[in-house]
Simulated assay, not measured.
Amino acid sequence: MKRHEALIPLSHHHHHALVKALEMKKAGTEKSEKNYKQLIREMIDFWKEDGQNHFRDEEDILLPVYLEYAEQPNEDLVKQMLYQHAQIRCLIRHLRESQHTSYDKVHELGELLDEHIRLEERELFPLIEEAVPDKYLYEAKGGFQRDSVSGK
């Protein structure tokens, strides 16, 4: 799927988060190469380096631009995205603070991340690309945090 150049930094974050999500979904199975404590540590590091800034970029920069320029913004999709952001923050907090977490919580976060990223990439981003003039998408890109893995 071709993505508008201005949204590529967010898509880079999504790619890295999908890798984490897949690892978390495999946790505790014969397909997993890591135990859940390793996965939790890596996810917390990813969150600290990229995830929380990524959510701020979407909530503080991208969504306001979309809502300003879309003739009929998809409010249900925006609400779903924001609700999922809150759910993900809650699970990250649980993993970070709980001494006795389980594979179930790791799996839950993996499933939710996977679902959330696909929602944004397949449904929300195409609406944003259609609604927001290029000039304002590029302006939004200027405020996005760099991806710590790719540097983009």
Rank of each mutant, 00 (worst) to 15 (best):
E108L: 15
E121H: 04
K79N: 15
R118Y: 10
G143L: 08
T101A: 12
H94E: 12
P9S: 09
H16V: 00
T101S: 14
K152M: 14
I128K: 03
R146A: 10
K141H: 06
L109C: 02
L119Y: 03
E58M: 04
L119C: 04
E42H: 04
H54I: 02
R3M: 07
I61G: 04
N53P: 02
N35I: 10
H107E: 07
F55D: 05
I8N: 13
F46K: 03
H13W: 00
E129G: 04
E68Y: 10
D76M: 13
V19C: 10
H116K: 08
S11Y: 05
P73V: 04
H15P: 11
G142R: 07
T29W: 02
R122C: 06
E75S: 13
Q87D: 00
F55I: 15
D45P: 00
L10Q: 09
N35K: 14
P73T: 03
I8K: 15
E108F: 07
V78N: 01
G143H: 13
L18Y: 05
L113T: 04
K135H: 08
G28W: 09
C90S: 15
R118N: 12
S11G: 10
D114I: 00
D60L: 12
H4M: 07
C90I: 08
L127I: 01
W47A: 01
A86W: 10
T29A: 07
D114A: 07
E75Q: 15
F144C: 05
L63Y: 08
S150G: 00
F125H: 03
L95K: 02
H85C: 08
G151W: 10
L91I: 13
G151Q: 11
G151S: 11
K105H: 10
E33N: 09
Q145D: 09
H16C: 02
I128F: 04
E129L: 01
K48I: 05
T101D: 09
L127K: 04
I117Q: 09
V149E: 02
S98Y: 00
G51T: 05
L127Q: 08
K20P: 00
E129A: 01
H4K: 09
R3G: 05
Q52E: 15
K34L: 07
V19I: 15
Q38R: 06
E49L: 11
M81T: 10
K105C: 01
M1K: 13
A140P: 01
Q84Y: 06
